[in-house]
Write a protein that binds this DNA or RNA. Structure first.
Length: 884
RNA sequence: GGGCGCAUAGCUCAGUUGGUUAGAGCGCUACAUUCACAUUGUAGAGGCCAUAGGUUCAACUCCUAUUGCGCCCACCA
């Protein structure tokens, strides 16, 4: 069989095959196992409109690594998958499709339009799911959820009703961000600000009493002047004191407006006099409320001027700006125009400049919800990796604003509010009915003339329930009890506010519990120049293209290995060659082993060798390396340092296992001990790297003798510390031999540099033949030796190891070998330091202020740390003695 | 205005609670080619770890300031 294996690893052939097998055998499905600890991850649901980009690839590779790792470590894992209905995004996509037929959504009407959206979803909505499968994601697909599922809607409605009953949801007219293209309100988070090169226009408003006298105001949006209802100045401003209380005539409109005084006005900016447009600016809105001004809306929902001044009726807001400026200029009322950079909100979906717009919307009162979410983080119950995001989160939470949750679109969860026309006619406050199901009649007047609120809820109003609504909350089923709260949330920094923070709030409000324990925030994937990858910039590297060219394992491994914790990822296509080459290296090393393996020789437990310490040096060394890498990988994965784990695995396999070990053992490859060690190393290594590279490991696993079933179902290798400890003794022995050789050589050269030096070298097999000649010459020149003898082609006879000479120093090719004296010194320093730290810790713990007042968990962790340090100290002591 | 991150080899980046000789990948140079793997191997060149101070026996690592780049939040009449 082995002879048939191709020289190159072919990912295409294996990947589809194994994913199908995993799915068919239900390897991803999670059931409640009372004897196991649960480990669950709830996927950040991609938009149904989504197609896989590098951000997804990174995000989901990380989750898959965690899930596969934890599963192998014996947890009952669950990776809950799903998609988000993505209100505006999806509606836009379907509207675009309609536009091709020359239709608008209004032409179809609400019900038919929504039917079209569902149709679209059935047809295209699972694209992203198929792509996640190509990425190897081990989600439990049987549980696939969608934020518009019927029972998911039940949860959303339930939450709305509960919050309304708690008076945490209210309706009101406020200035919100309005997208004139999407014709809907947007939350503050959905209106992303960016800088614009604009102008500051100075407009002259004549006084009523004396039309030759003016007050000049500065504005960036002159078209809103049609809605001005005051001009405000600072009461301390000497320039304007005398005008306070007087009236102005608003040009073009000819409305009388008052000059008011307010301390909030910055005297330095512009002219120090501000036009006040309460219906079109949040600050002016506040001023309007405070000073009882009139609120005059000058725009229609699509961003055109309304009939406030008939001349401008129907003009687009930017056209109107030009027209108004021209008209003012004609009247001599445009004082000057200066360049001015300003930042304006843009719709996060269509990038149209949003208009601050006065309208009636639903809001969630956030301050009470934020409280427990703040405390949990402050008390360390919820941890961010990397920790710096904690600050960002807290800062936002502590300054949280109310959340505008109504959207004037059709695709989404309809607001469960009904209006009684009869009651409304009398008093608008009486006519509101908030209900889980559509009420048959008005509870007050028994009228059946009810209509439901036209608006739908913000997409994030459903997403923030994701960690428990996916378990069919508000039903309290067994899965919810077992798998909730989830263990880790893996996500991108962009959605900390949108999503992470709100999930924490929802978790506390509705489940009295955190939704997850750890939040791992990975970086943003950027191109080589540091720009965000986006279609419009044309700098996208398509993960699917990489998969078909280099394979999924290569994609995953490369991506992970360059993602250091929380740092943005700068990506170029060449990066993936490394992953492909590595997969190929694993393939060929395995092929080599398979070609040389005698299956009947390997039915032996490693312990036989390790206990008797009969292992030869190469075998002992590689085993010790394997287990130290295993230890490091475990540590790295537990602290979310995926790149470090990946890089350790890479350099171990390539530069230690392949470059040195496999070369060293070639002459004795048929020996039983070598057969066993070689096999065990490969077999264990495959298990360790499986979470990173699931496909190639599964493929090789099935080629190996004595392996059954999927590698995914195998246990994670047990960390045999005694084998690492063996390393120390072996190392010491080795190092002594080497150092002595060097010392002898040096001594001889120093005494008589011209004296004849003979060196006997043992060299690995691969350095024989033509390869060795230039090397030998090199050594001869450097060491100025007369003769260089090669002792057969392999070692390890007594006191002879692989050595290469460089500048008269001997470099041990076997990693981890060090100068004994150096090692001693280092160890001593470490011991000293540890001892002083232990003293400090002991003092701290002995301090009553600390032990009695600090939270118990903190005291406990400090105690644990102390214990750890003490064991560490003992270990160091032992090492020191060994060195001596 | 507030906050955060980054500055290390030609390029892209690692660097584990400070420890003496700073690493990887790519690229470059020389050599090797029936041998598991050219998606390879061996060796090599290439670093005032942004700048200036400070703490320390010891600083790429900690502190302060400066410069440059990037990001987030708030405000901007």
């Amino acid at each position: 069989m082995s002879e048939e294996l191709s020289k190159q690893y072919n990912p295409k052939e294996t990947e589809a095959k194994w994913y199908e097998t995993w799915e068919k055998n239900n390897l991803f499905s999670a059931r409640i196992s009372p004897d196991k600890l649960p480990y669950s991850i709830i996927i950040p649901p991609p938009n149904v409109t989504g197609i896989l980009h590098m951000g997804h690839a990174l995000n989901n590779s990380i989750q898959d690594i965690l899930i596969r790792y934890k599963k192998m470590r014996g947890f009952q894992t669950l990776w809950m998958p799903g998609t988000d209905h993505a209100g505006i995004a999806t509606q836009n996509v379907v509207e675009k499709a309609l536009a091709k037929e020359g239709l608008k959504r209004q032409d179809l009407g609400r019900d038919k339009f929504i039917a079209r959206v569902w149709e679209w979803k059935e047809q295209y909505g699972s694209t992203i799911i198929h792509q996640l499968k190509k990425l190897g994601c081990s989600c439990d697909w049987n549980r696939l959820r969608f934020t518009m599922d019927t029972d998911y809607s039940t949860a959303v409605t339930e939450v709305f009703v509960r919050l309304y009953e708690k008076k945490l949801i209210y309706q009101g007219s406020y200035i919100i961000n309005w997208c004139p293209r999407c014709q809907t309100a947007l939350s503050d988070e959905e209106a992303s600000h960016s800088e614009l090169e604009g102008h500051l226009y100075y407009l002259k408003y004549p006084l009523k009493d004396n039309s030759q006298e003016f007050i000049t105001v500065a504005t960036t949006r002159p078209e809103t002047m049609l809605g001005d209802t005051a001009v405000a100045v600072n009461p301390k401003d000497e320039r304007y004191k005398k005008f306070i209380g007087k009236l102005l005539i608003l040009p073009l409109v000819n409305r009388q407006i008052k000059i008011i005084a307010d301390h909030s006005i910055d005297m330095e900016f512009g002219t120090g006099a501000v036009k006040v447009t309460p219906a079109h600016d949040p600050n002016d809105y506040a001023l309007g409320k405070k000073h009882n001004l009139e609120f005059i809306n000058v725009m229609t929902v699509d961003g055109k001027i309304n009939n406030v001044v008939p001349k401008y009726l129907g003009l687009d807001r930017f056209k109107a700006r030009e027209q108004i400026l021209e008209d003012l200029k004609t009247l001599g009322l445009l004082d000057k125009v200066t360049p001015h950079t300003l930042s304006a909100g843009h719709c996060y979906r269509c990038h149209t400049i949003v208009e601050p717009y006065l309208s009636k919307q639903w809001f969630v009162k956030m301050k009470p919800l934020a409280k427990p979410a703040i405390n949990a983080v402050k008390r360390g119950k919820l941890k961010f990796y990397p920790a710096r995001w904690t600050k960002v989160y807290l800062n936002w939470m502590e300054n949280i604003q109310d959340w505008c949750i109504s959207r004037q679109i059709w695709w989404g969860h309809r607001i469960p509010v009904y209006y009684c026309k009869n009651c409304n006619a009398k008093n608008s406050k009486n006519g509101i009915i908030v209900s889980r199901t559509k009420p048959l009649m008005c509870p007050k007047c028994k009228s059946t003339d009810l209509i439901q609120d036209e608006d739908v809820l913000d997409t994030w109003f459903s997403s923030w329930l994701w960690p428990f609504a996916t378990f069919y909350w508000p039903k309290e089923n067994a899965d919810l009890k077992y798998f909730y709260p989830s263990s880790t949330l893996v996500t991108a920094p962009e959605i900390i506010f949108f999503w992470v923070a709100r999930m924490v709030m929802a978790g506390f409000e509705f489940k009295k519990q955190l939704p997850f324990k750890d939040v791992y925030i990975h970086g943003t994937v950027r191109d080589v120049e540091g720009k965000k990858m986006s279609k419009s910039l044309g700098n996208v590297i398509d993960p699917l293209e990489i998969i078909s060219e280099y394979g999924t394992d290569a994609l995953r491994f490369s991506l992970i290995s360059i993602t250091s914790q929380g740092q943005d990822v700068f990506l170029s296509k060449e990066r993936f060659e490394q992953g492909r080459n590595f997969a190929n290296k694993i393939w060929n090393a395995s092929r080599f082993i398979l070609l040389n393996l005698k299956p009947e020789e390997i039915n032996v437990d490693l312990c036989i060798f390790s206990k008797n310490q009969k292992l030869n040096i190469a075998n002992a060394w590689i085993l010790s390396r394997l287990y130290s890498v295993l230890e490091k990988v475990e540590k790295d994965l537990e602290s979310y340092k995926f790149n470090e784990a990946a890089n350790s695995l890479y350099s171990f396999f390539w530069h230690e296992f392949c470059d040195w070990y496999l070369e060293l053992i070639k002459p004795e490859i048929k020996q039983k001990e070598t057969q066993v060690v070689m096999y065990k190393i490969l077999e264990k290594y495959l298990r360790i790297i499986h979470p990173f590279m699931p496909f190639i490991t599964e493929e090789i696993w099935h080629l190996l003798p004595n392996t059954e079933g999927s590698i995914l179902e195998k246990k994670w290798p047990h960390l045999q510390k005694e084998l690492i400890n063996l390393k120390v003794e072996q190392q010491i022995q080795l190092a002594f031999d080497i150092i002595n050789t060097v010392r002898n050589m040096r001594a001889e050269l120093e005494i008589n540099p011209a004296s004849r030096v003979d060196i006997n070298l043992s060299l690995p097999d691969k350095l024989t033949g033509k390869t060795i000649e230039p090397l030998l010459n090199y050594i001869k020149n450097l060491a100025k030796v007369e003769s260089l003898n090669i002792i057969d082609n392999y070692l390890p006879q007594k006191n002879q190891y692989v050595v290469v000479l460089k500048d008269l120093q001997i470099i041990m090719p076997l990693t981890g070998l060090v100068d004994i004296e150096d090692q001693l010194k280092k160890t001593q320093i470490k011991i000293d330091k540890l001892q002083s730290e232990i003293q400090k810790k002991e003092l701290m713990l002995a301090n009553k202020n600390f032990s009695e007042r600090a939270p118990k968990e903190i005291v406990d962790t400090e105690k644990n740390k102390l214990a750890e340090m003490q064991t560490q100290l003992i270990k160091l002591g032992a090492i020191k003695n060994g060195l001596r």
